[in-house]
Structures are given as structure tokens and as C-alpha cells.
Computed example of a mutant assay.
Amino acid sequence: MSSERVLVTGASGYLGSHIVQTLLNSGYNIRATARPSKVANLQASYTDVYNTEDSQRVQVAPISDLVHGEFPEIFEGIDALIHVASPLAGREDPDSTIKTAVEGTLNMLRQAEKAGISRIVVTSSIATVMNKVAETSDATIKDSDWSSALKEDVIKTGNPLLIYCFAKTAAEKAVWEFADAHPHVDITTINPPFLYGPFAPTQKFPTFDPSALSTVLLIHQIITPDGPFPPNADHTDVRDAAKAHVLALKAPPSSLVGRKRIFIASPHSLDFATITHFIAEKRPALKDRLTQTTPPTMMRDRAPVDFARIEQVLGLKKADFHDVEDTILETIDQLVGLEAIWKSAT
């Protein structure tokens, strides 16, 4: 078992929870951060399974202010950082969303570098290229591609999702500026599309909270009669995205493989008409509640990522990804189970 301890920010979220679980399964020790209100419950959920009097495999530490806070104590004894935490779409005004994404990320990088941490993985997004690589394009995404959206134009739209996409782009550009200024720090960004799949065991949902469901809400809408479909077919299983983050910790250094800006997505097709028929066939009890919305016609059925590059840097092969049918069914089965909990709480 590895004696390394990895610091994971945003550990109570959808992806963060899976990253912690994957790290634990891979033998790492964890120091997870979360908002102060979530620390006690999160610590208890891990302590019950992983911690003993002699071994504290999971420690949970509070961070109340990611942008301005100074917290050198959370970096003590840490070997690597996985920074997942990011402001959610629509939670703050546009300027605050963008500032929090950029300054919160830079604050973590600066403090990690000051503490002597030289391996850092940052969660970014495929949204950082999405109006560069058009919906109609089948050109493979390159690590030199960037969205060309302008801040003032995005803010004028008032669209929370577009503002979130710009915030992720601005934050990642700041990451690479930091990397250029600190070449002794080895940084990888993982850039996934929409994430689907079941929640990690530590995530609990006693009541229905759409914002807490993250992108799983898009799957819940498919089993809602008037629910919309996701805006595009780009996707990957959240467990595959988590695995990519963990594999990045042992990836070759940038000096050997170049800038490690890794776009990751499922190699499997996602066609919404096919998927709804598949759900009706495999889960006939849900047939009458499937969305009646007409499935959109997509110009592509998966994100055009470079799988050779993914394998070169992370060692993750196409065959290692979850099948989309399994991902969707496991997600829906868990959602149906949660609905029973939500119903009993009302």
C-alpha cells in the first residue's frame, strides 16, 4: 500500500467523491477538503470504512474561502494535489463566478508550490474548446485548441452555462501561465465533457436537490415525461474521469511528453433515440415515464478526443472505458432508488 497522501479539493462533489474512492482503491491516503458544513458527515462516512486508531487513511479538512484563505496546515505531509473544486453554474453573479474559478485555482497552486508539492492535477473541462471545435466538426481536439469566446459577450448572454464555460477556460489558462512560470511543478489538466454514472457511496441525497445532482440531473430528465435531452452527446463515465485523474499522478513528466492538457471522453456513441429505446427495453417499468421530447439530431455522437494521446500520457485505453449502456442503466437504477428516499422524506 502506498504511503503517499494526496490532497483532493472539492471532495464532497460528484467527481471529487469518485476521485477519492479511486485513490483509496489504488492504495493512496487522502486529505480531502470540503466546505465546513460538510466536513463532519464526510469524515464520518470515510472513518467508518477506512480509518482505524492506527491508520487515518482519510482526513477531511475544511476550507471556507478558496480564493482568499491561507491554509498551510492542509498541505503538511502532502505528496500531490488534485484540485477539483470549482464554482457551480448560476450560484454567483458572472464576475464572481469567473473570479472565484481563476483566483481559487491560483490560490491552491501557489500554496501547493510554496509547500514543495511538485505533482498537481487540475480538473478542467472540454468546455474550454467547445466553440473552437464546432458541433459539426469531427476534427480531433488538440491541446492547443481554446474557446475564442470573449468575457463581455458571454456575460451579455446571461446564460449560466456559458458563463461557467468561460470561467473554466479562464481558470485553465491561468493554470498554464502558472506552469510556465514554475517549470519545476509538473501539472496535468483533465478536461472531460458531461459526466454520467452512479454516485460514489459517500454521496447522500436525503431530499431532491437538482443542483447537488450535478450532470446526473440530465439523465434524470430523460426519465421525466416532459424532460429535455442533454444539449450534446459528448460524455464519459464519471468513474473513467476519476481514474484519469489518479493515473495522471504517475504520468510521465512534461519534459518527456509535452504539455499534459488531456481531453478525455467516452469512445462509445451516445444517440438519444437509441438510448431511450434501450431504457424502455431493459427497464420496462420506466417505459411510461420516459421523456416525450423529440430527441435532438446531433452532428456527432461523441467528443472527438485523441485516444492515442490519452493512452500515451495516462495509459488509459479505449477498452478501459465503461460501456455507455451500463453507465446509463446504473445511473437510472440509482436515481430510481433515490426517488423512493425523496418520496419518503416528503
Rank of each mutant, 00 (worst) to 15 (best):
E4D: 12
G10D: 01
G13T: 06
Y14Q: 09
L15T: 04
G16R: 01
H18D: 06
I19Y: 05
Q21M: 09
Q21C: 01
A32D: 04
A34P: 06
N41C: 11
V60A: 03
A61D: 07
D65K: 06
E73K: 02
F75H: 04
D79M: 06
A80V: 13
S96D: 11
S96C: 09
G104K: 02
L109D: 10
Q111T: 13
R119W: 06
K132V: 05
V133N: 10
A134N: 05
A134I: 00
T136I: 08
S147F: 02
S148L: 14
L150S: 09
K151T: 07
D153E: 15
C165L: 12
C165H: 15
A174D: 08
V175A: 05
V175L: 07
V185A: 11
I187W: 00
L195C: 04
Q203H: 12
K204I: 12
D209Q: 11
P210N: 08
S211G: 11
A212S: 14
T215H: 10
P228D: 10
F229Q: 01
P230E: 03
D234C: 14
T236G: 11
D240Y: 02
A244M: 08
K250N: 10
A251E: 03
P253L: 06
S254T: 15
L256D: 07
K260W: 14
F263L: 08
I264S: 03
L270N: 03
F272D: 02
E281Q: 15
L286N: 12
T297M: 04
A303D: 05
D306I: 04
I310A: 05
L314K: 08
V324A: 09
D326M: 04
T327P: 01
I328Y: 00
I332C: 01
G337F: 06
G337K: 04
I341L: 07
W342Y: 01
S344G: 08
